[in-house]
Each structure stands twice: as C-alpha cells, then as structure tokens.
Design a protein around this nucleic acid. Structure first.
Length: 419
RNA sequence: GUAGGUGUAGCUCAACGGUGAGAGCGCUGGACUGUGGCUCCAGAGGUUGCGGGUUCAAAUCCCGUCAUCUACCCCA
C-alpha cells in the first residue's frame, strides 16, 4: 500500500531541530511585548465573506487562491489566507473601539493559499504580524515598520532592505489611476499581455510587473508621490520623518503597490535576496478603510505580516555560513547491565526527570557498548553506568562524555550530583 | 492554470538497451566478557514512483499518470 504523504505545498516542521523556528517565535513575542502589543489568536477559518469583502473581490487571493468549502450547515467557510481581516473582524465584534486606543495586537499562525508551491511559497505557511488599530498617526506606521526590522535584527539578520511607498487614499488614488491609464494606453502595444488586462482592472499593478519591458516602462511613469492629496502627502512625510528619528534606513520605491485592496497611504516591504524568485520577507501598510468596509465603525489602522518559513530559510543559510557550534550536550543517560540494574535505573531516571534533569535509558536491550554509542549520538552530557558491581556497592559510575572523566557516586547522591 | 527539470536503499547519488541494480553516508551487530568518538569486518534494507507500450531483452527508449523541484501569475 502506498504511504500517505503530507498534502502538496505543506511541510512537517521540527522547530527544535535547528532551533531557529523557536528562536524566531520567541523574538517576535518579546519584540512585540516590548512595544505594548498583546497576542491575539483568531480562528483558522472564517466566513468566506470576510475575505471577499475585506481583501477584495478582484485580488488574486480571492479570485483563485482560497481554500473555500461548505460546512454541514451549508455555510461558506474559508481557511484564512491572511491575518489582517480576521483581526479587524475581532476588533469590531468585541467592540474594541470602546477600549483605550490604539489597540495593538500581534499574531503568529498558519495561513492557507491554494497556489503552486515553489521556493518560498507553500499552501500552508506561517505568518507573524502586528496590527495597530485606532490611530491615524504616522508615528504608528513608523512603529510598526520598526518592529518588523527589530525582529530581523534581533535574529542577527542584516542584509535586507526596507522599501516604502504611499498609494494614497480614495480621494487621490482615482486621480493617479486615471493618469496612469491615460499615459499607458498610448503605448498599449509595448506592454505585456498581463499588463494590458491590469490596465483595466488595477492599473497600479503595472508598476510592479516583472516583465523587463514593462519594468523599464514603469520607471518612466510619474510616481504616486507627485499625485498624493494634501492629507496623504503630509502623512507620508510624517512617516519618513519618524523613520529617520528612529534611525531606520529605507528606500522610496514607487513600484511597491501590494496585492490586497484594503491598503491606503503607507505601504512597505522588507526585501531579501535569499528567497529564490520571491524576494519579500514581509510587508504591510495602512488600511484606514477596512473596518468600515467590513461594516464597522471607521477605524484607521496599520500593520504588517511576515513569513516565518521565509525568515527561517534565510536565517538557516546564515547559520550554515557561520557553521555554528554543536557542543550543546545535555542530559543524563543511564546505562544498565541486567534486569535488576534496569529496575534501579528506571527509578533513578524518574527522579532525575522530576528534578528537571533530562534523563533517558535504553529501550532496546542493547549491550553496554551500544548504549554508550547511542548516548554519544544523542548528544548526552553524562552517562551513569549501573552493572552488577555497582548494584552491590550502591553506586553508579558517572562518566562525562566530553572529558571522559569517571567517578563513583552513590545512588542516594546521584540526583543531587547531576542536577 | 502554464512551462521546464527530476523520480533507483533511510539520505546523497552511480549503472552503454544485455550477468543476480551498486557505492558512500546512515542503521544494526561484531572485532573490544563492562566503556562512546578513530579504524576494520559483517548484516539488514529495493515493486528502479505507478500504469501501459516497443523489444529476444527496459532502471535505461516511447506514451500516459502521479509526486516533487524550479519558474510564470501573485504573494509571506
């Protein structure tokens, strides 16, 4: 019978193996806590409507990437493809606009998108993100950006760049779109097929087309900065001012447009080169219209989302380059010869564990030699040997697996000596 | 959805259309009655992804299918 494998685009993670995964999660938590963000855990699935309305009907996510199904109550349910809409939903549902503002939360959890897997892209992946709701201050935009950077820096990552842009608001964006369409329709023949359709559906997308000819073209287009309304212009200036106050370096990049409809004003991405064709570690922006779009009280907000797997991939390469040490031996392994010694060892193992000392014994009835070998490969720090002589004498031979030094320690003192 | 690459031992990979499909690493045991790392020896482990076709003969060639990787679209 054929073995059952993990579904396409999913992976089994062993977060303790290289430890990076766990370190990253801990870093996210501590960085967020230090800035007054508390954790939120929203459901893995939501009503489909939350995403069609929140993320946008014409986005790729909604059009072709959602895991949507009908449950037994005939409700249309969708595995969450992103984290912002659910957080805003929770904010409105729990009337958190009545709490002191801003409300600042962070999350770590799986997201689902039906895509063709490739490097840096999975059908189930993990994102960490923050959302700060209830303030339109550009200082909050800067804070959110600084948090993301802090996470990477705390993990020892340096070679990334922060790209910043503003995509305006419902007042000035239509004007910019119009001029784009006007300019581009003069050169329809020079655009790729995709961009021709983009021109009708979402002209901003032409800006970040990877097609070389389009990219050359996009660079000649006037940047959105020039078309921002007074309010947006001022906000954007505020963001850059605060970023500079935070001593954070960034690049203005008019081609950053983001793929979700809810963004307004500030958008940003953190780029890294070690991700294959993907180059985005994380990104986000302001979404001042989302709460209202979801039927709630108008609430200005900013946030970001970043990929754990992508960060781990980059950090893994970094760790390999540094060829990090493997001297982390820990724990005790009790080696026994004979059934009686084994009984003794089981009791001692239990005691050690109760005192917080990682302890283990052989479960395969192996020879002393083989048990030594096993303990060595497991990265055990100390072995305690119990055979006939030791049983009679009431002690164990304790061997340090690094130095090779051996001493005799009485059973009664063993836990104390090894803790 | 589209394009290309790859599927042989647990892992990394060999094998011109022709003997019983091999190696290294790993695993298990031994050399060493009770002492790991080094060395040596032995053993276990395969439906050559699956199905069909061509052929005297297929891991090898052809078709299909599935999986996987990479890339496009787009994103984390």
């Amino acid at each position: 019978m054929a073995i059952i494998r993990a579904p396409r685009g999913t992976i089994d993670v062993f977060p303790e193996e290289p430890k990076i995964w766990i370190q990253l999660e801990q870093t996210v938590r501590s960085v967020c806590h230090s800035a007054g963000y508390t954790e939120i855990r929203t459901p893995i699935f939501e009503h489909t409507e939350l995403f069609t309305r929140g993320v946008g009907e014409s986005t790729d996510i909604v059009e072709k990437e959602m895991y949507t199904f009908r449950d037994k109550g005939d409700r249309s349910i969708t595995l969450r493809p992103e984290g912002t809409a659910p957080v805003v939903r929770a904010y409105l549902e729990h009337k958190m606009w009545a709490a002191p503002q801003p409300v600042k939360v962070y999350y770590i959890g799986p997201m689902f998108r039906y895509e063709r897997p490739q490097m840096g892209r999975l059908r189930q992946h993990t994102q960490f993100g923050v959302e700060a709701l209830g303030s339109s201050s550009p200082a909050l935009d800067a804070e959110v950006i600084s948090l993301l950077i802090s996470v990477y820096q705390s993990m020892g990552l340096e070679e990334f760049t922060v790209r910043l842009n503003s995509i305006g608001c419902p007042e000035c964006r239509p004007r910019y779109k119009e001029t784009l369409v006007k300019l581009l329709s003069k050169h329809l023949d020079e655009l790729c097929i995709d961009c021709k359709s983009r021109l009708e559906r979402n002209p901003l997308r032409v800006l970040d087309c990877k097609n070389e000819r389009c990219a050359v073209f996009a660079k000649k287009l006037p940047p959105f900065f020039d078309y921002l309304c007074g309010d947006c212009k001022e906000h954007f200036k505020g963001v850059t001012t605060y970023l500079e106050a935070l001593r954070l370096s960034y690049e203005l990049d008019p081609t950053i447009v983001r793929g979700l409809d809810y963004y307004t004003k500030t958008v940003f991405e953190v780029m890294h080169s070690g991700l294959g064709a993907q180059n985005v570690l994380g990104g986000g922006g302001r979404y001042d219209g989302l709460a209202e779009e979801l039927g709630g009280v108008p609430t200005p907000a900013v946030g970001f989302a970043a990929g754990i797997e992508r960060a781990v991939q980059v950090l893994q390469n970094l760790a390999n380059d540094k060829s990090y040490e493997n001297n982390g031996r820990t724990g005790v392994f009790i080696i026994t010869i004979g059934d009686e010694a084994r009984l003794k060892a089981i009791h001692l193992t239990h005691l050690l564990r109760k005192h917080g000392v990682p302890a283990d014994i052989d479960y395969l009835g192996r020879s002393l030699r083989a048990q030594m070998k096993y303990a060595d490969k497991q990265g055990i720090q100390t072995v305690a040997i119990i055979g006939e002589d030791e049983l009679k004498g009431g002690y164990a031979v304790v061997r340090d697996m690094v130095t090779g030094e051996q001493t005799q320690i009485e059973f009664d003192n063993l836990v104390e000596a090894l803790r």
